[in-house]
Simulated scan of single mutants.
Amino acid sequence: MALFNDFIEVRRSPLIEDPYGHHRDWTTYTVVWSGLGAGVPYLRSHKAETPVRETTTNKATLYLPGSLAVDSSDQILFQDKLWTPEGEPWKWKLGARQYTMIHVRGVTK
């Protein structure tokens, strides 16, 4: 496992309502957790299959110390990019230590 030397920040925003419906207001997010963790980006990136969507999807696995409650609507700052969680966080113990593993994906243009 990599050393815990990557700065990672978990952000959460309130759900607001406007004339278009409900959405997250990311201008008023709060930091749920920040600190050093281990991030392992996957070597491969996936490009959109249709030429109409000019995006690339990257994936990574993040290891954070402690037992964290990460929500599927949170955003995670890692490597100066915003990532979104995929699936449920996996919590595990190694002796007396606790860790949280999160699969994340990031979309770039």
Rank of each mutant, 00 (worst) to 15 (best):
S73F: 13
M1I: 03
D74V: 07
K91E: 11
K109H: 05
L68Y: 07
L3A: 11
Y29P: 01
Y20E: 06
Y99T: 00
L68K: 07
Y63D: 08
T57A: 12
R53V: 10
W26P: 05
N5Y: 03
W83D: 07
F78Q: 07
W90R: 15
L77T: 12
T50E: 10
T100V: 00
L43D: 13
G95P: 03
M101P: 00
Y63R: 12
G66E: 07
V107G: 00
S73L: 12
R12C: 01
H22W: 05
S72A: 15
E54Q: 12
A60G: 10
T55P: 04
R105Y: 11
K109W: 04
L82E: 14
G87T: 09
D71E: 15
A60Y: 09
W90G: 08
G66F: 05
T55A: 11
S13F: 03
T100K: 00
S67R: 15
A2R: 15
I102H: 06
Y29T: 04
R44E: 09
D6E: 14
F78S: 09
R24H: 14
H103P: 04
V10Q: 00
D71N: 13
S13Y: 02
G35M: 06
T84N: 14
P19I: 04
N5Q: 14
T108H: 01
T57E: 15
Y99G: 00
Y99I: 01
W33G: 00
I8F: 02
L82R: 13
N58H: 15
R53P: 01
A60S: 15
E9M: 10
I8A: 03
T108A: 00
R105C: 11
K109P: 09
V32K: 13
I102R: 01
D18L: 02
K93G: 05
Q98V: 12
W26L: 03
T28Y: 03
L94G: 02
K93L: 09
S72F: 10
D25E: 06
F4Q: 01
P14R: 02
L3I: 07
N5V: 11
P65Y: 06
K81S: 11
Y63A: 12
D25T: 06
V40K: 08
G35S: 07
R105I: 08
V107I: 13
E49G: 03
P41R: 05
S45P: 01
L64W: 04
S13C: 09
K93I: 07
W26M: 02
Q79E: 13
T30S: 14
D71Y: 10
T57L: 12
V107W: 03
G95A: 06
A48D: 04
T27C: 01
L36M: 15
Y29V: 07
L64K: 07
L64H: 05
A60L: 13
P14T: 03
T100A: 02
Q98N: 06
T55I: 11
I76K: 08
P85S: 12
A69W: 06
V40N: 08
K47A: 10
R44K: 04
W92A: 00
E49M: 01
M1D: 09
A38I: 03
M101H: 04
A60M: 15
F4M: 15
L94Y: 05
W26H: 00
H22V: 12
F78N: 08
W26K: 02
G21W: 02
E9Q: 11
P85F: 08
P85R: 08
S67H: 09
K109N: 04
S13K: 00
